[in-house]
Amino acid sequence: MDNYIEIIKACIKGDRKAQKQLYQLFADKMFGVCLRYADNVDEAKDILQDGFIKVFLNLKQFNYKGSFEGWVRRIMVNTALEKFRDKSYLFAVNMEQGYESKDSEYDHILSELAVQDLLKLIQELSPQYRMVFNLYAIEGYSHKEICEMLNIKEGTSKSNLSRAREILKEKVKKYYGIKIKSI
């Protein structure tokens, strides 16, 4: 944390070198986050770009208390959510009742899959499922927090999550099931 303070202060003054340094410190991690929330690489690039501009413009508001990385990450997630809010289709998903699958076969397959494959699976989800799954399963937000962030009902968040899991499982089976078994 301490080593960031100097860089942050220089960035606030508009020091371009420091800004580049800050960018390089977090770009890889944050691109990883953006890729999960995006449809594709281009969209992830947009989110990363807009997110970093917000980081630079709002650095003054960082209070040096919490984790700086967490703060940057939060801005990236918010930028991603904002992008999807701009597109109205975020909320246009049908509300199917979800169920919890007890089938552990695909969980086993999952653990064998490469990161890139998992990323691709997530990117293929429809936007709202992707948001909910990311926020809950990966970032660890509670349903209550998610329903506030996305402005949906808590029940919707829950059913979206189970539906997302279901779809992921189906896809794992479809794309990788046979291949992995044959290994």
């Binding site: 690039k45 770009q49 899991r165 992921l168």
Partner: peptide, 22 residues
């Protein structure tokens, strides 16, 4: 769920270098 855990383990700290143009 276990599946969530798998995704989380692999993706939570996933890093990738963005293109220079960003």
């Amino acid at each position: 769920s276990n599946m969530d855990q798998d995704f989380r383990n692999k993706l939570k700290n996933y890093q990738q270098t963005p293109p220079d143009e960003v």
